[in-house]
Design a protein around this nucleic acid. Structure first.
Length: 228
DNA sequence: GCGACAG
DNA sequence: ATCTTGTCGC
C-alpha cells in the first residue's frame, strides 16, 4: 500500500519570497469547490493531451488533439515562453497552467475532453493542475500522473487520508501504472475507462504521449519549425 | 523527531 | 522536469 501526504513547511520553504501561500491556498479551495463531477454528456471523439517541456526558465507547451475515430493526431497547439514561478509540489499550476492554456488556445477545434500531465482532484487542496485547468476553461478534464502526489492507494483506488473519500484510481498503461483523477465535468469511472482505452502504447495515453514528444521537439526547433 | 514532494 | 554515453533489445 502506498501512502503519501505533503509537508506544508517544505512547501513554504520553496515558495518565492513575498509569495502569499495562505492566499494561494484560499484560491485553491475556492476553485476546488467549483469542480463538477458528472457523466460525459456527448459522445467522445476528440481528446486533447497537454504537456510541457523545459530548458532553464523556458517552457515549451504543446496541446495535441487526438481523434479516437481516426486513431491519430489531427492538430497541434504550441506555446513557448519564459516561466517565473519555480516548481513547488502542490503549486504546479502557478508554474505551468499559463503555458498550457496558451498552447491550448492555439487549437482551432475544441475537443470533447482534455487530458493533462498531472493530477486532478488527487491533491491536498483538491485542485491539481488538471482540475485547475478544467475549472478555469470550463471543460471536461482528466489528470494523468506518473507518480503519486497525495493520497493512499488501496485496491487500485486513491483514497484521501483525511476523509476516506475516493479521489482517483490507478490504471495500467502498458508496463507502467498511471494515477488518474477527475479534473472537471467528468466522473472517475468515465475517466478511468477513457484513459485505459487510450493507453495504446506504454507509460502514457496517446494524446499526452504525442504532446510530450512534440514538446521536446519544440524545445529544440521552436514552435514554428517543429510544427512546420 | 524526521521525512515525505505532480512536473 | 533537466543534466547526460553507451548499451541492451526488438
Amino acid at each position: 500500500m502506498v501512502r503519501r501526504i505533503i509537508s506544508e513547511n517544505y512547501v513554504k520553504s520553496r515558495v518565492p519570497k513575498g509569495f502569499n501561500l495562505e492566499a494561494a491556498r484560499m484560491v485553491q479551495r475556492r476553485l476546488a469547490s467549483m469542480v463538477v463531477t458528472m457523466p460525459l454528456t456527448q459522445s467522445v471523439d476528440l481528446i486533447t493531451g497537454i504537456d510541457v517541456a523545459y530548458r532553464g526558465n523556458y517552457a515549451y507547451a504543446v496541446a495535441a488533439t487526438y481523434s479516437m475515430r481516426l486513431n491519430h493526431i489531427i492538430e497541434y497547439g504550441c506555446y513557448e515562453g519564459e516561466v517565473t514561478f519555480p516548481y513547488v509540489p502542490t503549486l504546479l499550476s502557478f508554474r505551468e497552467l499559463s503555458p498550457m492554456i496558451k498552447a491550448f488556445m492555439r487549437l482551432k477545434e475544441r475537443p470533447h475532453v482534455v487530458l493533462i500531465d498531472g493530477h486532478g482532484v488527487a491533491h491536498p487542496y483538491r485542485l491539481g493542475i488538471a482540475a485547475h485547468f478544467g475549472v478555469v476553461m470550463g471543460l471536461p478534464t482528466i489528470g494523468v500522473a506518473k507518480s503519486l502526489l497525495y493520497g493512499e492507494v488501496k485496491e487500485s483506488l486513491i483514497i484521501d487520508p483525511s476523509n476516506g473519500e475516493v479521489i482517483g484510481g490507478v490504471v495500467k498503461c502498458g508496463r507502467h501504472e498511471v494515477y488518474v483523477s477527475v479534473g472537471n465535468m467528468i466522473t472517475l469511472d468515465n475517466a478511468l475507462t477513457l484513459v485505459s482505452r487510450l493507453c495504446l502504447r506504454d507509460r502514457m495515453p496517446e494524446p499526452i504521449l504525442h504532446a510530450h514528444t512534440m514538446a521536446n521537439k519544440v524545445k529544440h526547433n521552436g514552435c514554428v519549425n517543429a510544427l512546420a
